[in-house]
Amino acid sequence: MMDENEVWINADVALRYELKSGDYVRLKNQDGVVSNRIKVKATERIRPDCVYMVHGFGHNAKGLKHPYMKGASDAQLQTRYVIDPLMGGTGINMNFVTIETEVLHG
């Protein structure tokens, strides 16, 4: 039901980064992987040390017409993970990102 996903950033953090809802940023993880552009949602509904995005967007497979090149992919940023040897479940909570604000072209 949405065209693109948004990255939820705590309102005070957004203010510090001079970001407001509707601005676009990229996320960069601990291994240097940089995401697609994603729209900012500045909100009180998230902790200052976390960001959130809806899963399933930012795909680069043309066949996935709806999310193709729309929003960003959380999966792309999860480059560190461990796999449970019995049932294959993944632990992905050791991936960290920084917010990369867009540089305005001069």
């Binding site: 009180e44 902790r47 200052p48």
Partner: peptide, 11 residues
């Protein structure tokens, strides 16, 4: 409808 400031929120 969300009111308040993190972490004291009402929705």
């Amino acid at each position: 409808d969300v009111q308040g400031k993190y972490p004291n929120l009402h929705m």
